[in-house]
């Protein structure tokens, strides 16, 4: 059951990721990206991380993609002329294949073969209470830093978009 789900979600995420980078229209790319994010959220559930799956859907598939779609529609973006020299495109593909080959070789050389599954995880692993107590004790400092970062991002985004000369 878990094996079948993993294969389904993995194939779905790879297929929709390929469609994201090959579709000419930006809107279609964004919609395929939503599918990828949902597949990855499903994989998180298989990995005993239900909280992260929920956050993935709320933040990525919800907030981030809505923002991206909003910008695409606000700017009325059509597909743009993508004249890429053949050399540049093949260089990109060669670099990607090299990257893939190196990571495949590194992973194949590893001996970590512990069988995964949602059963057999430690008690409370991935539960909201476990993560919350870690977040507010051991990782309190990075948590506070992240809140400042989010504030800075809000202020920065408004400052960048503000029209010149208006105060």
């Amino acid at each position: 059951m878990e094996t079948a789900l993993f294969i389904l979600l993995a194939l779905g995420s790879i297929l929709s990721a390929l469609l994201v980078i090959t579709t000419p229209s930006p809107i279609a790319s964004a919609l395929y990206l939503v599918v990828t994010f949902f597949c990855i959220a499903g994989l998180y559930v298989l990995l005993a991380a239900p909280l992260l799956a929920a956050i993935q859907i709320i933040v990525y598939a919800g907030a981030v993609l809505v923002l991206v779609l909003f910008v695409i529609m606000l700017l009325n973006l059509k597909r743009i002329e993508e004249k890429i020299s053949r050399g540049w495109k093949s260089a990109g593909i060669v670099v990607t294949i090299l990257l893939l080959g190196i990571s495949f070789a590194a992973i194949a050389a590893s001996t970590a073969v512990l069988v995964l599954g949602t059963t057999g995880a430690p008690m409370g692993f991935g539960k909201v209470a476990t993560l919350g107590s870690l977040l507010f004790t051991q990782y309190l400092y990075p948590f506070e830093v992240v809140s400042v970062l989010l504030l800075l991002a809000i202020v920065g985004a408004v400052a960048i978009i503000r029209k010149q000369g208006s105060s």
Binding site: P26, I84, G92, T96, I97
Partner: peptide, 15 residues
């Protein structure tokens, strides 16, 4: 790698 290929071969900033 698919993401890297997208960054390297597309010209649309949003994509």
């Amino acid at each position: 790698s698919i993401g890297a290929a997208g960054v390297l071969t597309r010209k649309n900033l949003i994509v």
